[in-house]
């Protein structure tokens, strides 16, 4: 595994050293100049994308044929890509969080580190989801075709999510939103009036969402699901790789 990781690492650094540095400067610069946290979230995804290129480099040099003649197991060959992806996601997550420490909105107090953490965790979960889909598809169809297939799969997932929200009644949606803290309580007790009054408010800020423990369950659940999906994806890719003909 060490040799495989080193191979991918040295290829990516050799090919993309300047590019990675430029992306880092550009994304950090845009985030700070325009006070846009989104650029730091996107950094996690962007760095992950680089590791996907390692599969393309392998294809162009027919590395997998050669790898089958070496004393390494298919699970290790595939696993090194997953590990590299995880290192990229964790590494860019740490860079992003450190960058948030000096972020203008954080310095001014208009944004909390809590919000930054949630955004970065969501970006990490999304990256894990992307790789969980794209790596097995790359091993099955080749990395070029896999990119197109991943976009189609993500669009299908979005359609499923949108259809679900359409199928649910507004009352059912409100119950779900309320459960996770995106909406205030349906009614609150007014001590002056001595009775409950309707108080149906949609919460728009993370500070409000974060007060609900269920919201943290949702974030933690998304990350846990992302990790679980990643592990399952690794197993699926290993099976595909083992049965692939070269």
């Amino acid at each position: 595994m060490k040799g495989l990781l080193y191979k991918d690492w040295s290829i990516l650094i050799g090919q993309y050293r300047k590019n990675i540095f430029l992306v880092l400067i550009l994304y950090l610069g845009m985030a700070y100049l325009f006070n846009t946290p989104f650029m730091l979230y996107a950094l996690v995804f962007m760095f992950g994308i680089y590791t996907q290129s390692a599969v393309s480099f392998d294809e162009s040099s027919h590395w997998d044929t050669y790898a089958h003649t070496l004393p390494i197991h298919p699970a290790a060959v595939v696993g090194s890509k997953y590990l590299l992806g995880l290192i990229a996601i964790v590494g860019s997550f740490v860079i992003g969080m450190v960058a948030f420490l000096f972020f203008p909105s954080i310095a001014r107090g208009t944004m909390g580190m809590e919000e930054a953490l949630v955004g970065m965790l969501a970006a990490a979960a999304l990256s894990l989801l992307y790789f969980s889909l794209s790596l097995p598809l790359s091993y099955q169809f080749g990395s070029e075709r896999a990119r197109a297939v991943v976009i189609v799969v993500i669009l299908l997932l979005l359609m499923v999510a949108m259809t679900t929200t359409v199928l649910l009644s507004s009352e059912q949606m409100q119950v779900i939103q309320r459960f996770f803290g995106f909406r205030g309580p349906a009614e609150i007790w007014d001590s002056n009036l001595g009775q409950a009054v309707v108080m149906d408010v949609e919460y728009g800020s993370l500070t409000q969402w974060a007060r609900n423990l269920h919201f943290w369950w949702l974030i933690g659940g998304c990350v846990a699901f992302g990790v679980l999906l990643y592990v399952v994806s690794w197993k699926v890719s290993t099976v595909i790789y083992r049965h692939k003909q070269f």
């Binding site: 040799g3 040295s10 040099s61 590395w63 044929t65």
Partner: peptide, 21 residues
Amino acid sequence: DAYFYEGMSAARIGRSMAGIF
């Protein structure tokens, strides 16, 4: 035509093979 990616140097290929073998 099946080998390491051509962007690698012999030294790096050697280090990678050391990790593999």
